[in-house]
Design a protein around this nucleic acid. Sequence first.
RNA 1: GGCCCCAUGGUCAAGUGGUUAAGACACCGCCCUUUCACGGCGGCCACCCGGGUUCGAAUCCCGGUGGGGUCACCA
Length: 472
Amino acid sequence: MEVRTRFAPSPTGFMHVGNLRTGLYAYLFAKQHGGTFILRIEDTDQGRYVEGATDAIFRTLKMAGIDYDEGPGKEKEGMIYVQSQRKALYKKYALELVEKGHAYYCFCQDRHVKDGGVGKYDKKCAHLSREEVQAHLDNGDPYVIRMRVPETDGVSEYDDMVYGHIAVAYKDMDDMIMLKSDGMPTYNFANVIDDHSMNITHILRGNEYLSSTPQYNLLYDFFGWQRPQYIHLAPIMRDHEHKLSKRYGDANFEDFVSKGYLPEAIVNYIALLGWSPKGNQEKLSMSDLIEQFSIDGLSQSPSIFDPVKMRWLNKEYITALSPEAFAEAARPFFAKSKAYGKYDEELIFKLLQPRLETLGDIPEMIDFVEEWDGYDLELFVHQKNKTDKDLAKTILTAALPVLENTPWDNDSILGALSELAPTLGVKKGAVLWCVRIAIAGRAVTPGGASEMAVLLGKETSLSRIKGSIVRL
RNA sequence: GGCCCCAUGGUCAAGUGGUUAAGACACCGCCCUUUCACGGCGGCCACCCGGGUUCGAAUCCCGGUGGGGUCACCA
C-alpha cells in the first residue's frame, strides 16, 4: 500500500523549528517509502489567522528543501488542501454522525467560556428529544455538534509506532465539539475528515495528541473508516520545563537563516533532535536522511534545543562550501560590514570561510579593518608568549623599521618578523602576537599577523604600529 | 486534581538481561601551525530513588519522585 503522510501547519505566525521538524519527518518517512507527502493548511481558526503566515510556510518548506507532492498549487483531482475552503464537507459528515446517533446538537451557551475549572461536558444536551432539538433549530438558536462518547465501561485503544500501546477509558473522554457555532469544524474533527479523505496512511504529529487520539479513533470507528497508523513525536524543548514555542523568537527558521545559518545545517540539526541514525555520522544531507530515517530511531523523550551544537554543525556546512558558493552566501552578510567594498573580498573570504560558525559573524569578525582606535592595551599581555605592555613597546619599536623595508607579501613579512625575534631575545610567537594585536586591536582575528598585515596594506599597518607605540 | 506519556554525563544521544555503559557538542589539557583560528590527540563528566524478578538489571515488573502533555466553540 502506498504510504501517504501530511504536514498540516496552521498559519498563525512564523514557523518554528519544532514545527518544521514534524514536517521534515513526515516528508522523510513518505520519501523513504516511495510515498506521497501532502501539505494541508489548517486555518479553521479565523481568529488566530496571521496575514502572510501561509507564505511563510511555503517559503520555509522551500528553503528547507521539503517538496510536497500534493497541496496548495499542486491539487490532485479537485482536492482542496485549505481547510477553510472545505467547510461544507465537514458539516455534511457531522450531520451524518448525528443521523447515526454518534453525535448530537448542543445548544448550551455557557460551556465555551473557560471558567478555570476542569472537567468534561456534562452531556446536558446529549439526550434531547428529536422535537426539542427541532424546536431549538426552528428558533434559530446557535448550536454546536458534539460527538457522543459511549456511556459504557469501554476503552479506546491503539498502538502508536513510537509509544506503543495507548488506552483511554470512555469515561475519561469528553464529548468533544466537532462543529463550532460558526459552522467551522474544530481541529479535532477536521483533522479526521481530512486525513481520511486524503487517504493519509501515517500520521506524524506532536505527542500532545497522544491522549486525544483514542477520541479521534472513535470517530474513524463511527464512520466505519480504517484508522491510520500513528507516529507521535516527543517535543523539542527550550529548556527542561518549556517547549519551544513561537514566543521563543530565536527558534524561527527564517530568523536562523537571516542570522547566517545555512538551511541545510538547520534541517540536519533538527533532524537529530529526537531521532538518531544507526551509525555515528551526524552530518547528513537530505538524501542521507531519507535513506537513514527510521521509526525505531525516534525518541520517546523530549530534547532540548542546543544552539551551540547547531552552530557547530553550521560551521561544518560552511567549511564544506566551494569558494564560489561561500562567496555567494557570504556576500549579503559581508555587505553589512564596514570593510565591504574597501578591501580584497577574495582574500577576506578565503580567511573567513574556515573560521566562521555563522555567516552573521562576518561583520564583527572583519570590522577591525575599519575600527581600531582605542583598543584595550591589556591585549598585549599574553602568558604563553610571555609578553606584556613594556615588551610590546620594545618589540614594536624594533619591528617598525624592519617592516618599512620589507616587501609587502605574506612570506616576506613573516620572514622579517621571525628573524627579528632572536635579535631581541624573544620567541617568534611574541613578536607575531604583538604585531597582530597592534595592527588589529583584537585578540581573535581571521588570520595571523602577516595575513592581517597584507590585508590591511603596508600604509595602514605601519601607521597602526606607530599609533600603538605612542599609546604604549 | 483526573487521565496519558517520559526519565543514561551540562546538552544531543547509542544501548532492547551479561558492554571497560558508544559517539557528538560544550569544557579542560597537550600537540601541530615561523602568528590567531582550524586541525590532531587525550581528559573530565551519566544509567532519578526504593523495592522486586533473575545466577546476573541501565535494560523486565511494581511503587515513589521529578518533568512534560491533556482536560477550549486553539490548533
